[in-house]
């Protein structure tokens, strides 16, 4: 197995403005590797630095220090090559609410240079997969939260990325929709050897991960297979592992 994401001593700090003006370190010298085809769980309490890490790996944010390669390309020097290889579902929705589902997907397809015939064919397939075919020409504004999320998953897959970043893909969804979304994700993983980098607060979802990293206060405090982690903390679920590793206090209060 070869690693498709290699992170070395990656850090990012922010200057807070206003009355609480100071510098905070959101990501603090983290290092890890993700293997080809892996389902990699990236866990941590609110404000731990998960989204900031994803923003750096997806070229949207420059690191303050450290380096990383994604699909073999440097995230600072070879941004366009990285961008071609990745797909991302952001934590907050990034659909155009004034366009239809189809138009959102078509827009995405053009951005990634997919030709018209392939575009049309894949859009039809993906809309069927996320069960939105009958709403293809509805304005996204009229969609429920679950429908929007499914559409975003379809969009993230449209250009056949090698690595898919999922930042809380099932946030705010009911158990049925979550189950559906996981069924799509499993289907994709079976048909294509796609690497998935996942963050979530629903810890039952990470039981199936190949490996899980836990980040807290910008630092990685654990990284292993779920079974190994459970043995180490002598517990039965990933939920318990999480609480054992990160403690029971609300971490964000300490940061502020």
């Amino acid at each position: 197995m070869s690693s498709v994401i290699t992170v070395e001593q990656l850090s990012r700090s922010f200057r807070l403005k206003g009355r609480n003006s100071r510098t905070i370190t959101a990501v603090d010298h983290i290092s890890f590797q993700v293997q080809q085809g892996e389902l990699f769980g990236f866990l941590g309490p609110n404000g731990a630095g998960k989204s900031t890490t994803i923003a750096m790996l997806t070229t949207l944010l420059l690191p303050s220090s450290g380096t990383a390669t994604v699909a073999g390309f440097d995230i600072q020097q070879q941004r366009d090559q990285v961008r071609k290889k990745i797909g991302i579902i952001f934590q907050e929705t990034t659909l155009d609410h004034k366009l239809t589902a189809y138009e959102n997907l078509n827009f995405h397809g053009v951005l990634y240079g997919i030709n018209r015939i392939t575009r049309r064919q894949r859009i039809t397939e993906l809309l069927a997969m996320v069960e939105l075919s009958d709403r293809a020409h509805s304005i996204v504004q009229e969609f429920s939260g679950g429908m929007k999320r499914r559409l975003e998953i379809a969009r993230g897959l449209l250009h056949l990325p090698e690595i898919l970043f999922l930042d809380e893909p099932t946030l705010g969804l009911d158990p049925q929709t979550r189950e559906h979304i996981w069924r799509y994700i499993d289907k994709i993983r079976q048909t294509r050897s796609m690497t998935i980098f996942l963050t979530t607060h629903y810890l039952d979802e990470v039981e199936n991960c190949n490996r899980v990293a836990i980040i807290d206060g910008g630092k990685i405090i654990a990284l292993d297979q779920p079974s190994t982690l459970k043995t180490r903390y002598q517990v039965n679920t990933m939920n318990q592992v999480f609480l054992e590793a990160t403690g029971h206090g609300i971490r964000e209060d300490e940061l502020l």
Partner: peptide
Amino acid sequence: EFGFLKEILVAPV
């Protein structure tokens, strides 16, 4: 503000 720009910024364009 509403995030759609990220969809464009993360694309290889």
